[in-house]
Amino acid sequence: MPRLILAPALIAVAALLAGCGAPSGRAIEFTASEQACAPAAATAAPGERLVLQVANESKGDRELEGIDGTRFEEVVIPAGKVRRMAFTMPESGAARFKCYAPGGAATVIEIAPAR
């Protein structure tokens, strides 16, 4: 009985861990400077798989986080580093993110659905 439960559980975990590696999709590049993150607007097709690439050229850490219900978890981009993050556009509406220095002002980035 325990083996019956254990085997599928282990397979499920292994399958999840195997789904790693580099994110794939069309890349949209952003740059974080001391003042802001740019560009603040982009477009993508509904449901399109994207790679959000953020190069942090500032001297401090920056964070990117989905807002207004955009399903994207907070990621820290350490100073001087580049982060490539997978994101799938919602089927309807825009995706909104905030790019900010911890405790500092935020740039709101909007990826609008392409017409």
Partner: peptide
């Protein structure tokens, strides 16, 4: 060091 290119923090495995 920076291992994000090997195992991205935003990937499913990285998050787990």
């Amino acid at each position: 060091w920076d291992m994000d290119a090997v195992l991205s923090i935003s990937s499913t495995a990285g998050q787990f």
